[in-house]
């Protein structure tokens, strides 16, 4: 989406540079990108290793110990077992809410009435401290799978809804004028202009929604009943296996990044012929 808006803005403001145009951000040659990435990882993990070796706290493991623990947990199937459990509420929640949330956001973008009664709800939901709300879910939905699915939905729905809504509302007015001047029906305008134009933000919302959903499921697993990775974290903490506990946390970050990256790949492959 960033590319998309940049491209259309480029169209408005600068033409001197001709084809391609100049970038807002300086472009790093692609053959050197991996080097910078490597350096950035090295700095973070190096800092971690040093902090673990001082140590900043007896309970803070080194990066190397954490990686060893992560390897162990990968090899003995602990992680696979935990994620098999964690992804259930995550996938269920995402399936249930993503379609609904996109439709809702699109509806809010297209209709003032829908916007009027539902925008405040989602803005409040997005601003609400979810970690504080999740224990309350148990009052309504108990402590089972349902509660976790609800936690995932509560975390991800507002982001998806608001992004879809923004996507619709950000449709270039001149593209709308263009479709009107060529006598598009409202249906054609929505299908051929508004939705494709909003798709970037909608997909970005879905990606952020998945990341938020992961946060939601982990929060639920930590705060409602310990299952999956939430159980790993709780358990390793209770028996003071801190490298394993940090490895579990690290695995969530890796899991979330991989999921988001895969989604982005899928989006580019399926819906972005122009890139």
């Amino acid at each position: 989406m960033a590319d998309r808006t940049a491209a259309s803005r480029r169209g408005l403001s600068e033409e001197v540079a001709g084809a391609g145009g100049h970038q807002i951000v300086e472009r790093v040659p692609s053959d050197r990108q991996w080097l910078w990435r490597l350096i950035s990882f090295a700095v973070v993990f190096g800092g971690w290793e040093i902090a673990g070796r001082i140590p900043v706290s007896p309970s803070f493991p080194t990066f190397s110990a954490t990686i060893v623990a992560l390897g162990e947990m990968l090899l003995d199937g602990t992680l696979a077992g935990a994620y098999a459990e964690t992804v259930q509420p995550l996938i269920l929640g995402m399936l249930l809410c993503s379609v609904m949330a996109v439709l809702f956001g699109v509806g809010m973008g297209l209709s003032r009435t829908v916007e009027w009664f539902s925008l405040p709800i989602f803005i409040i939901l997005q601003a609400a401290p979810m970690a504080a709300l999740i224990p309350l879910i148990t009052f309504l939905y108990g402590i089972g799978l349902t509660a976790k699915v609800v936690a995932v939905m509560l975390m991800s729905a507002p982001i998806i809804v608001l992004n879809s809504y923004k996507g619709i509302r950000n449709t270039s007015p001149s593209l709308l004028d263009m479709s009107r001047s060529f006598m598009a029906t409202r249906r054609q305008q929505i299908v051929k202009i508004i939705l494709p134009s909003a798709s970037g933000l909608i997909f970005a919302g879905l990606r952020l929604g998945v990341a938020a959903g992961v946060t939601g499921v982990v929060l639920a697993e930590l705060l409602i009943t310990p299952t999956g990775v939430g159980d790993l974290i709780t358990y390793y903490r209770s028996v003071a296996e801190y490298p394993h506990m940090f490895a579990s946390i690290l695995s969530i970050i890796i899991f979330s990044s991989v999921a988001v990256t895969l989604l982005q790949r899928a989006e580019t492959a399926l819906f972005r012929p122009e890139t």
Partner: peptide
């Protein structure tokens, strides 16, 4: 249109 109003996709 002044800004061309082309569909980028």
């Amino acid at each position: 249109f002044q800004d061309f109003a082309l569909m980028p996709w």
